[in-house]
Simulated scan of single mutants.
Amino acid sequence: MAIDDLRNRDWVLLPGTLCTGDVFRGFLDALGIAAARRKPVSLCHPEIAAYQTALTSQSEGSIICGFSLGAIVAAHHADRLSAHRIILFGVNPFPDDPAKEAGRHDLARDVMAMGGASALGARLPPLLGATPDQARADLLAMADATAPEIEAQTHLALTRPGAIAALSRAVPPVLILTGAEDRMTPAAQGQAAAEAAPCGRFRLLPQLGHYALMEDPAACAQAVVAMEDTFR
Rank of each mutant, 00 (worst) to 15 (best):
G61Q: 10
I48A: 07
P46Y: 03
A54K: 06
L43P: 07
H45I: 02
E60M: 05
Q58I: 05
A71N: 03
A50H: 12
I72S: 04
A71L: 00
H45P: 01
S59C: 12
S42R: 15
S57H: 12
V73C: 00
S57E: 13
E47R: 15
G66T: 05
I72R: 07
A54S: 13
H45C: 04
A49T: 13
S57C: 11
S68V: 01
I72W: 05
L55I: 08
S59V: 11
A49L: 12
Q52G: 08
I72N: 01
S62H: 06
E47H: 15
S68R: 08
V41W: 02
G70A: 01
S68I: 02
I63K: 07
L43T: 11
I63P: 06
P46L: 06
S68P: 03
T53Y: 03
G61V: 10
V73K: 04
S57P: 06
G61I: 10
S68D: 00
T53S: 13
L55Q: 11
V41E: 00
A50S: 15
L43K: 06
F67W: 04
A49E: 15
G61H: 08
S57V: 10
A50W: 09
Q58K: 13
S59G: 08
H45L: 07
V73A: 00
I64E: 03
V73W: 00
C65A: 11
S62D: 04
T56V: 14
G70T: 05
G61N: 09
S42V: 14
I72Y: 02
C65L: 04
G66P: 02
L43E: 05
A71P: 02
S59Y: 09
T56K: 12
Q52D: 11
H45Y: 08
G66L: 07
E47N: 14
I64Y: 07
A71H: 03
E60K: 14
T56P: 03
